[in-house]
Design a binder for these strands. Structure first.
Lengths: 213, 213
DNA sequence: CAGCCTTATGCAACTAGTTGCATATCCTCT
DNA sequence: AGAGGATATGCAACTAGTTGCATAAGGCTG
């Protein structure tokens, strides 16, 4: 149950409407807890129903009209309770890693291009984070809240830095797999091709030891 | 739709029963794509129904009795197709980061202990990965499949290394927040306490600028 | 042979996240 | 005034992941 607490945090930072929240999510909290506007509206409804937040405009449940929310004492208490609560770290769940694993068995065909693409994306994200850091956290020596927010941003920077590095490294590995040293020893039998152990439909091109189709 | 493909990969590496798969997930693929035995059984049923895998024992749908599966050509083809497919990187979704963000607004009360706990967990995980690396990937200079699997493991190592580092660093930050320099300047007015902007129930202990409850 | 533990398979209900679409208001341009 | 786009709220259906529990077979032990 993280989304409602993310929303409470955002609303405490600044009372907002659903769309405003969505936009702010897109450029801060959403980096590590994305949410669509549909999710946010649903959750706002629940939070209002349970008395954690309330609309600023007392009467006006009109459909296409802006509706701003603020956090009630109950909501703040709930957020404080949740903050002190413990939870196990989340697993990674990055399909790209699964694809590598699969490629180890079934052939690494389109993989390099995909790694390249991710590398670009992560470089961009990293640049974006650095920009935010430069802009919002210049001197250090600030208050407690800001320091904590900075720590969160540093997590984003650290993670993106990791991905950029790992992707570059893995692309290297992939290249040496696809083009074994052309100047070195004999390129006749690169190594034991034990990868595709039992399967039909495996042409096994002789120029590519990684490949099963 | 990643789980079915994770299962296909695992089954290609070695035909197995549901429970065996579950155990193998727990110590390899599951590190970056966890799955419970219930999920796995359900998915095995679907994969069998769609002709991607089949049971090795032709007749014997007995309840408490082992049932092993192998991948069919169709399943291998599907896995190859999926491997070449592209997908956006997944967002992080780590509630701990949300908690930090919340703590910036609502007070960092139980946070240090929680960070400490995570630090221990990540150190253990990192040690586990290093152990696997030492044991399963000793010399390098191996075949393509193994190199790819090693790359995946390196991702795990890199991520855990990042977390260990970031948690240590953030714990430091947190300490300096909770105990401002006792030998340095005047501790009377640490800095602008703009953190809790609008809220009731905020005692604001004078010894802790980070705290709102 | 009865009881109990381990191995093994599986259903059902729930929760959370995703996707597609519907609809209302307000503002601007013609 | 009417058309069209931007702003804004929201429902509904679907998909995927989680949790709790039921049940059967097989082996070990008193």
């Amino acid at each position: 149950m993280s989304l409602p607490h993310a929303i409470l945090t955002a609303l405490l930072e600044k009372p907002s409407s659903g769309l405003e929240l969505t936009r702010r999510f897109d450029k801060s909290i959403g980096f590590f807890w994305p949410a669509t506007h549909q999710q946010i509206y649903r959750e706002l409804g629940r939070l209002e129903a349970s008395g954690h937040i309330r609309a600023l405009q007392p009467e006006a449940p009109v459909r296409g009209q802006k509706k701003e929310y603020e956090v009630l004492p109950d909501g703040r208490a709930e957020l404080a309770r949740w903050t002190a609560e413990g939870a196990e770290p989340r697993a990674v769940r990055e399909p790209l890693l699964l694809r590598l694993r699969a490629a180890a068995v079934v052939g690494a065909d389109g993989l390099a291009a995909e790694l390249e693409r991710h590398l670009t994306l992560h470089r961009e994200q990293l640049a974006g984070y650095r920009e935010i850091e430069r802009h919002d956290f210049p001197a250090e020596r600030t208050d407690a809240g800001t320091r904590l927010q900075h720590a969160v941003l540093r997590a984003g920077i650290g993670l993106e830095t990791f991905w950029v590095q790992w992707l570059a490294e893995t692309l290297d590995t992939l290249e040496t797999l696809e083009a074994p040293p052309p100047a070195a020893p004999a390129p006749s039998a690169p190594s034991a091709p034990s990868t595709p152990p039992a399967s039909p439909a495996s042409p096994a091109s002789p120029t590519d030891p990684a490949n099963g189709s």
